[in-house]
Design a protein around this nucleic acid. Structure first.
Lengths: 314, 314
DNA sequence: TATCCTTACGGAATTCGTAAGCATG
DNA sequence: CATGCTTACGAATTCCGTAAGGATA
């Protein structure tokens, strides 16, 4: 039994049981992978993978149990490396953050800058993707912490904590009829072509739910993952934009676009920070996570990490 | 980084940082241990052990963190082996039980026999010791499950579940004056020489507490770890025995010894079963643990293992 | 001086690559 | 026949033992 075998098995599962791809991903030879896995199976006296001829078809029942143990082992190996980083290169290291465009563009700049001010030798890597991809990047150890409004809370092996609460705003050109309406209604919006996020992004689910409850079928003229794109199309008259309020923060009140809060229509959303259950958080990571919300304290984070559910109001 | 290094570090800590002993315990050469640990420290870029000249003095602060990760990794490696056992040799394997004399002699025979009836190919190994030793045997992976009335519940990295509740009885020769007394008092007992368990065993702490509260200073003529020994000395007139009621179960009512329950004096005790947090319990182990109490069910045990506190009345 | 950790070194075992073989879809 | 896992084999590396060196209590 050795750590290589564990890594191979884990990566093989992540690569859909394709050992050739696994070998490429781990920069080693394919026969080496094959042999190592077979030897582990022999040592344990069970088959981790069900084989059909010479192809791996699926994970066996005992294989599932093996996999769970392997996940924990590899997690702790990663933790050991982080502990090493923390204590050898004091206050230096790399923080990989997986997040959506909205957070990367509008929310994270400030806390990331603060992190760099406090720890100038820390390097930050941003990985952008859909909320589901964010979750997957955490599971695959591509990123250490994740930030998104959707999806994260549903993933079982992630620990999530609420960061901040926000609502949607509609955005229209200053001369648009709705620019003068203080509290637009769902009916008014449904009558216009809309420009908003892709269905899996940034609270879009709340928007769809609200329209569905009112039995309205709005027209989406354009869907994007990105408020900057949405605003651009609103400017050229494609329709009424619906974006996160955060995305309008930097637009001056007297500018060419007018924003109206529509929390009364779509409710409020909670953006969450997540990390893999059991991950070791270095000091600067802890500091960073704390900086994401006034209510997040180190002890609260530790409590959440240890598996206890954490409840508090934002 | 490899599993050998982890094992060495773990064993070194268990052997009080004596690498020579560690090497002996692991049947390998002492320089090999030394080198492996140094290489791990180099790879992590930190010192796990503080050295004074050429001796290891103590575990450093980062070393504590490393140790915690190593413990988890080795635990999961042990789990992998158990999973292998479970699925390769179906319904066969070894179950190591750490327990005290009282349990081994009076409580366990029945459930152990039942286990062997259901799983004839399972081998049972009993490790006897003090309650503290029982706890230590679980921590050191000498035994997989432990059974004792004392100490177990206080150990942090063990999961414990109540098994059964019992009270003490006094034991006297049939012709003894107290043999006729239905409900003896603390004062009556304190006036006699007593024969009971060693202070750390089998509910003895309750006995001491009761006397202390009544400001009585009883005389213990003899202390043993073992009700059979105690009964023997009661027979030869050394004094009044105080043992677990279980220990008198097989003595016939009309025999040479008379037992009187004294739960009204010393309260009741709870015997607990324990295992290492995060251990993988094979099917036959689960069955065995369930058989220890009517109230223990598989799902309850799983819940306790997953870290959730379990509360129920016996 | 007895104990105990580190360094040095060499033979043995393991590792890991390439090349070839063979099963599936 | 293209993809993909397993087997074969040999060079390079790592492992792990004994022997020697140096530090502490």
């Amino acid at each position: 039994m050795n750590l290589h075998q564990f890594r191979f098995v884990q990566e093989a599962v992540r690569r859909n049981l394709n050992l050739t791809e696994t070998a490429k991903a781990l920069y080693t030879s394919q026969p080496g992978i094959s042999k190592a896995i077979i030897e582990l199976e022999e040592e344990l006296g069970l088959e981790i993978f069900e084989r059909h001829g010479k192809r791996l078809r699926r994970v066996t029942e005992p294989g599932q149990l093996v996999l769970r143990a392997v996940e924990i082992i590899m997690r702790e190996v990663a933790n050991l490396q982080r502990i090493g980083e923390e204590y050898s290169k004091q206050e230096a290291g790399t923080l990989s953050i997986a997040t959506t465009h909205t957070q990367a563009r509008y929310f994270l700049p400030e806390p990331v800058a603060a992190l760099r001010r406090k720890y100038p030798r820390v390097q930050v890597v941003l990985h952008q993707g859909t909320p589901r991809q964010v979750a997957q990047m955490l599971r695959d150890d591509v990123a250490e912490i994740g930030l998104a409004t959707e999806a994260l809370a549903e993933v079982d092996d992630l620990v999530t904590l609420p960061c901040y609460e926000w609502q949607h705003v509609i955005v229209v050109p200053a001369q648009h009829a709705l620019a003068a309406v203080e509290r637009p209604t769902l009916e008014q919006l449904a009558a216009e072509p809309l420009v908003s996020y892709h269905p899996t992004f940034t609270g879009r689910s709340r928007i769809d739910q609200a329209f569905a409850r009112a039995r309205l079928k709005p027209t989406f003229a354009l869907e994007a993952i990105d408020a900057d794109v949405i605003k651009t199309y609103v400017r050229v008259g494609m329709g009424v934009g619906i974006v996160a309020e955060l995305a309008m923060r930097d637009d001056p009140p007297g500018g060419d676009l007018v924003a109206r809060p529509v929390g009364h229509l779509f409710g409020s959303n909670v953006t969450r920070v997540a990390f893999k259950r059991g991950a070791y958080l270095r000091q600067f990571v802890l500091t960073f996570v704390e900086s994401l919300s006034d209510r997040l304290t180190g002890s609260l984070i530790q409590r959440a990490m240890s598996g206890n559910p954490v409840h508090y109001d934002l």
